[in-house]
Design a protein around this nucleic acid. Sequence first.
DNA 1: TATGTGACATCAA
DNA 2: CTTGATGCCACAT
Length: 112
Amino acid sequence: MKSTQKSNFFEDVYQVVKLIPRGKVTSYGAVATYLGAKGSARMVGWAMNSSHTNPEIPAHRVVNRNGLLTGKFHFGGLNQMQHLLENEGIEIEDNKIKNFDFHFWNPSTELL
DNA sequence: TATGTGACATCAA
DNA sequence: CTTGATGCCACAT
């Protein structure tokens, strides 16, 4: 167990993000709290940064606590993230998700 | 071992 | 409304 796995933390983040239903979004802090790393929302963002090696990670469904698409600059195009979200039925305005509360998917509550 | 960094969160002014 | 500062934890060098 030293060469087949990188870090459970990243893996856990990926698992949770991949479990996000279509048309739903979550926040870094929510995922961090669910993983037990409460207060370490940055770690989730870090994991997302590595998610580039994991094409199965819908990172576009992970936004900051304000529903703001802070990470869109890391996508291929600046509109890529917004387009993906809009494609799932989520409305975006000014780089921010509208009805964020409605689209919010809390792993600690929904996933359990 | 120590230092720097980060797609955040939260508070204060 | 905006900007600045601080805390947090894991990873890279």
